[in-house]
C-alpha cells in the first residue's frame, strides 16, 4: 500500500518526459517549416516530425492515465495518424509537382526533368528561387 504514491510519481515523470520530447520535435518541425527554402524540402522534413511528436505526446498521455480503454483510443489515433500522414504528404507533393511549384536552385534534377517535360508539356520550365 505504501508503494502506491511512488507509482504515481514515476508515471508523472515518465509522462512529462515523453510530452516534453514530443513538444521539442513539434517545435523543431515548425522552425523547419519557416526556415527551409523550398516546398518539397519542407514537406519531406515536416510531416514526419509532426507525426512523431504527436505520437510521443499521446503515448505520454496514455502512460499517465494508465487505463485500458484510454490506451486503446490512443493506439487508434496513433495508427490512424501513421497511416494517413504519408498518404496525405504524397498526394500534396504530387499535386505540387503537377502545379509547377518550383524546386530549390541547388536541387539536382537531371533525370527528372525529362519526365516533367513529358507530362507537363510546354509550361515546364521551373523558375528557380533561393
Amino acid at each position: 500500500m505504501t508503494s502506491e504514491p511512488d507509482y504515481l510519481l514515476l508515471r508523472e515523470i515518465v509522462s512529462s518526459c515523453f510530452i516534453l520530447l514530443g513538444t521539442l520535435f513539434m517545435l523543431i518541425a515548425t522552425i523547419g517549416l519557416l526556415r527551409f527554402p523550398d516546398f518539397y524540402i519542407r514537406m519531406s522534413a515536416i510531416t514526419k516530425g509532426a507525426t512523431l511528436g504527436v505520437g510521443l505526446i499521446l503515448l505520454g498521455m496514455a502512460i499517465y492515465f494508465n487505463q485500458a480503454d484510454m490506451l486503446l483510443k490512443v493506439i487508434v489515433i496513433i495508427t490512424f495518424t501513421f497511416i494517413t500522414a504519408p498518404v496525405a504528404a504524397h498526394v500534396i507533393a504530387r499535386t505540387a509537382m503537377y502545379n509547377n511549384v518550383p524546386f530549390w536552385k541547388e536541387t539536382r534534377l537531371e533525370a527528372f526533368r525529362e519526365y516533367l517535360k513529358k507530362y507537363l508539356g510546354k509550361n515546364s520550365e521551373e523558375e528557380v528561387k533561393d
Binding site: 513539434m26 504527436v54 505526446i57 496525405a88 502545379n99
Partner: peptide, 25 residues
C-alpha cells in the same frame, strides 16, 4: 503557393491534437 498553405494546415491539425491531449492530461 497553395500547397504550402495545405502543409501549414496539416501542421495546425497535428498541433491541435497535441494541445487537446495535454489539456486532457
Amino acid at each position: 503557393s497553395l500547397p504550402d498553405r495545405i502543409t501549414a494546415f496539416d501542421l495546425f491539425v497535428a498541433n491541435m491534437i497535441g494541445i487537446i491531449a495535454i489539456y486532457t492530461e
